[in-house]
Design a protein around this nucleic acid. Sequence first.
DNA 1: CTTCATATTGTCCTTTAGGGCAGTGACGCC
DNA 2: GGCGTCACTGCCCTAAAGGACAATATGAAG
Lengths: 207, 207
Amino acid sequence: MPGLVHVVDDDASFRTAIERRLKLAGYDVVTYASAQDFLDAALDDEQPGCILLDVRIPGLSGPELQNRLIAAGSTLPIIFLTGHADTPTTVQAIKAGAEDFLTKPVSSELLLDAIARALVRQDAARSHRGKLEAFRAHLATLTQRERQVFDLIVRGKINKQIAYELGTTERTVKAHRHQVMEKMQVHSLAELVSIAERLGMLDSNGG
Amino acid sequence: MPGLVHVVDDDASFRTAIERRLKLAGYDVVTYASAQDFLDAALDDEQPGCILLDVRIPGLSGPELQNRLIAAGSTLPIIFLTGHADTPTTVQAIKAGAEDFLTKPVSSELLLDAIARALVRQDAARSHRGKLEAFRAHLATLTQRERQVFDLIVRGKINKQIAYELGTTERTVKAHRHQVMEKMQVHSLAELVSIAERLGMLDSNGG
DNA sequence: CTTCATATTGTCCTTTAGGGCAGTGACGCC
DNA sequence: GGCGTCACTGCCCTAAAGGACAATATGAAG
C-alpha cells in the first residue's frame, strides 16, 4: 500500500536518516522540524499517509499535536517514535488511537510493519468515513420538514401517525416521504433505516 | 458504582495491602496468587467488576491471561499493574483493550480512578451486549426458512422478489414474514432492519 | 400410527405505501 | 410584480403488506 509518510522530529540527522530508510521502502516522505510546521502545511487529510511523530519536540509536543488532529477530525494515523517512553504517555497515546508507540532506535522491521498497518487502517477508515459523509451530505439537503418525516419514518411510524404528530395530513407526509427517498437516494425503507442506524440516529428509539 | 475487584498478583504482601485499600474504598475484593487460580475460579462474567492484573507472574503471564479472557468473550475490564513496564507490552495491552496500565507503586487516586472508569465501561458494555444477546436469542428461534426470509426482508426486497429468489409464492413469504416479526418481537420493518444492522448483518448489502 | 413442527398455498379483505395530476399559500429574492 | 422553494392538500388509482380462515404435505419424535 503506497502512501505519504509525514516525519515530525526536531532532530535533523534523524529526519535525514529516517527519510532515507522510508524512501528505500518505497514511501513518499515529507519531514517537519516541529509540530507547528506540520500544522502549517495544511495537509489534505484524505490523502493516503501517516505520521511518524516524536513525543518530545520543542513547541507543541507530540501528544498535543495528536489532540489537535483528533479535534480537527483528522484520520491520519499516528505512529509515535520516542527516545524513552514513560508509561502514562504511552497509554494515553494508544488510548487516543495512535497506531503504535515505538522507541528509538527502531528496527526497520518494526517501523515498516507499523507504517503498513497504519496505511491499511487509514484506508479502511477513509472509505468507511467516505460513505458516512455521503449519507450526511444527502441528509443535509433535506428541508426541515423532510428531516422530521425522515426521523419518524426510520422509527417505524406509519404515515398516519406521522401526519398526526406533525399536525398535517397523510397525503402531505407521502409527499415529504417521496422527497426523502429521492434525496437520500434509496429505494427501500430498509436502506433508509440502515443509513439512519449507521449515522447513530437510532440509538435510543421506541418502536 | 459498586463492583467486585479481582486482584491477581503473586506478591502476597502486595495482595494484602491492595485488598485493604480497595475495601476501604468500598469495593468487594477477591485475590488470586496466579492467573491459573483466577481461571479456576470460573467466574460469572456478567457480574460487575474488573481485574487488577500483574504483568509478570509465575505461570500464565498477565497479557496471556488477557488473551485467554478475550478469546473466551469476557467483558471484564483489565487494569494492568506492574513493577516496570516495557513499551511494547504496554502498547499491546492497551491495544487489546485494557482499561489502563499502571506502575507500582500506584497512588490510590490513579488506581481508584482507573477502577471507577473500568466499572462504568463494563456496565455500558454489559448492557449493550445484553441487548444484542436478546436479539440473537430471538434470531435463534427462527427456522431456516424464516431466517432466509429475514435476510431478504432487511435488504429491502419486496415479497414478490423474495418469493422468486426462494422459489416459492408471495403468500408463503407473507406467512414466514409474519413469523419473523412475531419471533423477533418487533412491530415494524424499521425495527427489524435496525436490529439486523446492530447485529452486523448488513455490512455489505446491495439494495 | 399419532403428534408436532415446518413449509407450503389459496381466497378474500383491509390497511399502507406510493404516485399522478392539480392547485393553494407563504416567504424571500431580483 | 415575477420567480423559485417549501409546505400543504384533495381525488383517484395501483402496488404491497398484513391478516383471517382453511388446507396440504413432509419428516422427525414418541
